[in-house]
């Protein structure tokens, strides 16, 4: 790994796709300094690759000309940047106070029974990763969850299982 963490290796030119670089450049127009693109770049690369590997991290650091340790410190700070592989769809189950009062733990148990995964785990078929998430701002329709980029509310155990089965068939 040492060689890919070195600065000015040109690693980003080899590693990042044209599309990823173009998307980062589009975001660059919104910010006065390139190093400020760190979070955008992490999000863009993650959107294309599912998660942020050490190689991705090194490529972003090289591309933005900032230290890899700096990018790592940012990547590990934020909840929605994944430094480990995740499934094709991430289930973000709200476990904040109102959803807790209205039964998010029963959803968690039911997902466990359906997919065999608890928080932080990925299903054996690589389809789903289950993570807790902070209040999704839908407390009048609790409990709520995101499956991929789809927001769902007024959930109960049967409904979340139906949604999971259905989302498997999408695409």
């Amino acid at each position: 790994m040492a060689e890919v963490f070195a600065r000015d290796t040109g690693w980003s030119q080899v590693y990042l796709s044209d599309e990823e670089r173009a998307e980062i450049e589009r975001e660059a127009e919104c910010y006065p300094r390139r190093e400020g693109l760190c979070i955008e770049a992490l999000r863009i690369v993650q959107r294309h690759r599912g998660w942020v590997s050490d190689h991705s991290l090194a490529a972003i650091a090289d591309y933005l000309n900032v230290d890899a340790a700096e990018v790592e410190s940012v990547a590990t700070f934020y909840n929605l940047i994944y430094r480990r592989p995740v499934g094709r769809r991430v289930i973000l189950l709200c476990n904040s106070v109102t959803c807790w009062m209205l039964g998010c733990e029963t959803l968690r148990t039911r997902i466990q029974a359906e997919l065999g995964i608890d928080f932080g785990e990925t299903s054996a078929d690589g389809e789903f990763t289950l993570l807790p998430v902070t209040c999704l701002g839908d407390c009048d329709h609790a409990p709520a969850a995101l499956i991929g980029d789809r927001h769902h509310h007024d959930l109960d155990p049967d409904r979340i299982v139906a949604l999971l089965r259905q989302s498997r068939e999408d695409e």
Binding site: C30, Y31, E35, G36, I39, R43, F77, Y78, L80
Partner: peptide, 26 residues
């Protein structure tokens, strides 16, 4: 412009938010 955060409660604190906007730890 629209900045989409990568998620931390502390970003709601205005000076932490500014650090996040600059691409740093919040």
């Amino acid at each position: 412009h629209l900045h989409i955060s990568a998620g931390r409660y502390i970003c709601g604190e205005e000076t932490a938010l500014i650090n996040a906007l600059e691409g740093k730890r919040a």
